[in-house]
Every structure is written in C-alpha cells, then in structure tokens.
Amino acid sequence: MSDWHPIFYTSERAPGVWTMETPSDDVPFGRIELRRTTAGPRCKVILGREVMGWASLQLACERLSVGRLEQLQAGWNGPPNGRRALRSV
C-alpha cells in the first residue's frame, strides 16, 4: 500500500476503540468504536462529542478525517484576522 490513508492517524488504545489524532494535535480529535449491530459489526464515528454515524472501519476513518477538515475550514472562513468590513454611512 503506497497511498496515504486516514487510518494511519488512528491508534487502538483499548480493544475495539480507536482514537484519531494528527502529529500536531495534543489530544485526539475523534474516536471510532467497534459495536455489534443487527446488521453486523459496525464502527460508531465520533468527532468531538458529536456522533457522525456508523460505517466500516476504513470508511469511518475517512469520515472522521473529512469531518475534522471541514471543522478546521469553518474556523478559517471569514475575513483575515477576524476583521469586519467597514460600512459607509
């Protein structure tokens, strides 16, 4: 496997529970928990305190990574340095 995948940012700290963090993060930003469901084993995807949904482990890692990127992008939107445009009266 020569391509990068978000699963490389995960670490299994307890059986069936993966945390995801980037090398620059101090604390994990998300968690993936393996659960038994009526449809078979599924992973619960959690970003911060919000449950994003259920998926296979590979898809769960992708969803968590995309959710984190969207969260970061939302913080970057807007004018530089938080300036507001001046209105002429």
Rank of each mutant, 00 (worst) to 15 (best):
C61V: 03
G53F: 10
C61A: 15
D3M: 11
P41V: 01
R49H: 05
G53M: 04
D26Q: 12
A85Q: 11
P28N: 03
E50S: 08
S88M: 10
M52P: 00
S56C: 08
G40A: 04
R31L: 07
C43G: 01
R84A: 11
T19A: 01
E21F: 02
F29H: 10
R13H: 04
L69A: 13
A60Q: 06
R49C: 00
M20H: 05
N77M: 10
R36E: 11
T10P: 05
A39T: 09
W54S: 08
R68S: 02
G75A: 08
P79W: 11
V66F: 11
F8R: 15
I32R: 05
E62Y: 04
G48T: 07
E70P: 00
M1E: 09
T38W: 09
V89K: 12
G67R: 03
M20Q: 14
L69N: 12
R68F: 12
Q71P: 00
A74F: 03
L34T: 06
M52A: 08
A60C: 05
P15Y: 07
R83K: 12
F8T: 13
S24L: 08
E21A: 15
E50L: 07
S24D: 13
S24F: 09
G30K: 09
S65L: 04
L47E: 06
A60W: 06
V66H: 13
E70C: 11
R42E: 07
H5A: 10
G82P: 11
T19Q: 09
L64T: 05
L57P: 01
G16H: 06
D3Q: 14
D25A: 10
T10V: 09
W18Q: 03
W54V: 02
Q58G: 03
K44D: 04
H5L: 06
R42A: 05
D3T: 14
M1Y: 04
N77H: 08
P23W: 01
H5C: 07
N77V: 13
V51Y: 00
R83A: 11
E21Q: 15
R83H: 13
R42N: 00
L59N: 13
V66R: 15
V66C: 08
Q71I: 00
K44M: 07
H5M: 06
T10M: 08
L47T: 05
T19H: 08
R87F: 06
D25L: 02
G40F: 07
R63Q: 12
G78H: 10
L59G: 03
L69F: 09
L64F: 03
V17F: 01
F29C: 02
P15C: 01
A85G: 05
S56W: 02
G78C: 09
R63M: 15
E50I: 06
L34H: 07
C43R: 05
T38R: 15
R31Q: 12
P80T: 07
W4E: 05
T19K: 05
Q58F: 01
R49S: 06
S56I: 02
N77R: 15
A85K: 11
I32F: 03
G75H: 12
L72Y: 04
G75C: 10
A39F: 08
P80V: 06
F29D: 02
V27L: 10
R36F: 04
D26F: 09
W76Y: 13
P80C: 09
